[in-house]
Design a protein around this nucleic acid. Structure first.
Lengths: 254, 254
DNA sequence: CAAAATTTTTAGGCCCCCCTAAACTCAAAC
DNA sequence: GTTTGAGTTTAGGGGGGCCTAAAAATTTTG
């Protein structure tokens, strides 16, 4: 097989974004932990995610394929190569470390960090990455509860989690992950106190959403939101590191 | 005169860089404080500074001129318009705040901050700018001793300074500004302890440079370096804010 | 299994910002 | 006051990354 030279040329911002999205979409909502259990991603999915027309995606996939970062078969979808996977994890690490840093060091709300991290992730040096990782105490999860790849680009093991919609009435647990980047949704979650680490209980599943209790409050969460809220059941062995959602000691080592 | 619509479109990184360099080159080494005492800048100067061919500069200047950010007359040079000046100051503020932040918050050496700030300056939000400015206590000078434009884009008054080459033998003062971005020069200055705030004395001007004393050490500084080192004479009223060159309290308000 | 509907790719363009080569200006020197 | 040459601009290209419109492949449907 033709040994495609894995480019030394620094990748463009667009290229990094494509790789990151291929990883994210390919990992599915289940959060696969290795390249092996990653799915092929469709042109349309990428177009939607990156906010670009499908024709543009095709063009970029061809280029990434030539660079050996992606395995692309026309009409059949893409998946990352080992090299592309590395790059994607690196970008993801930058993104999530930045989110954690903005939250903990600069006082950003956990619902505000995504947008800023999105732009900065492509422009920080390895030195910067290392310094904020150290400042943070090498965290394993960002403020949304998403796992941060280690410096060696390994994804940390996360505790078993279930979507809120999958809990039965009466079950409760701690919010482990808020898996949306939609700003309105994030704002709403923040407003309701539904951030990683918060205790939440399912009261009942209604046709128009899921009725939950958070602290002493009761809310009706639309299905679309209950869908993206992941919960670790209490009593489960390990509930994870919630990215210092509020004034805990930021220097705690992982 | 045709009222050129001052674009609302966000500027590209390249455009911001051109504007910044026009400001820097136009301010001359004397550090002019307002747009009025700014000089016209030459195509060649810009080409050298931005590391681009003169033909490319011409093209960009035409575009900036159409955007109303610059007054450009073929063969005669450019200067910033009021609008362009504002943009340039904003970029400069980002750059210098970032330098200060990297130094004080993340432990970068003062000689290392330039390169990182150079990339980040185009990608931080106003919120980020504001948060680091606050964290720093609204500093007036960066770690190299360069003035940081205020949030209102005013350049702070700096103490009177003279180039080291202009001091007479026997005169001494505090390093106020290290006006180079050349990494090798910066490393050398750092190595010799010649950072803002350091005491330095001119021993004599030799044909091959300037002989100086720094603490108990004596060095021969090549003219090119003595040229970019600015000194505030001791006994002068105000010596400025040296950007917390070492462990002073980072939270001190300005 | 063929027709219809959907998805994806190709083809052709556009803007950005850079380049080289050649033509032009201006100013300094004869 | 020409000549000469440094500095500058025009002309023509190229790669990146996006777009629209049209063609092709795949999947769904009857």
């Amino acid at each position: 097989m033709p040994e495609s030279t894995v480019s030394k040329t620094p990748l463009s911002e667009a290229q990094e974004d494509y790789l990151k999205q291929i990883l994210l979409l390919g990992s599915g909502a289940e959060g696969a932990g290795t390249l092996a259990d990653t799915l092929a991603v469709t042109t349309q999915n990428l177009a939607d995610e990156i906010q670009v027309k499908p024709a543009s995606v095709t063009g970029m996939l061809k280029k990434l394929s030539e660079l050996g970062l992606v395995e692309y078969e026309a009409y059949r979808g893409v998946r990352l190569t080992e090299a592309g996977y590395k790059v994607a994890l690196e970008v993801l690490r930058h993104h999530r470390l930045l989110e954690a840093y903005l939250h903990q060091a600069l006082g950003y709300g956990w619902e505000e960090v995504h947008a800023e991290a999105e732009r900065l992730e492509h422009h920080i040096s390895e030195a910067f990455e290392q310094r904020i990782a150290e400042w943070l105490g090498h965290p394993t999860h960002d403020p949304h509860g998403d796992a941060i790849p280690s410096a060696a680009l390994e994804l940390p093991q996360s505790a078993p989690q279930r979507r809120l919609v999958a809990l039965e009435a009466g079950e409760y647990g701690l919010v482990a992950r808020v898996a949306t980047q939609d700003q309105d949704s994030l704002n709403l979650f923040a407003h309701l106190g539904l951030k990683p680490g918060a205790r939440v209980e399912v009261l009942e599943h209604a046709p128009d959403g899921t009725r939950v209790r958070v602290g002493t409050e009761r809310y009706l969460l639309p299905a679309s939101l209950a869908q993206v809220l992941w919960v670790s059941l209490m009593g489960d062995s390990y509930v994870g590191d919630f990215g210092d959602a509020e004034g805990r000691n930021p220097k705690a080592k992982g």
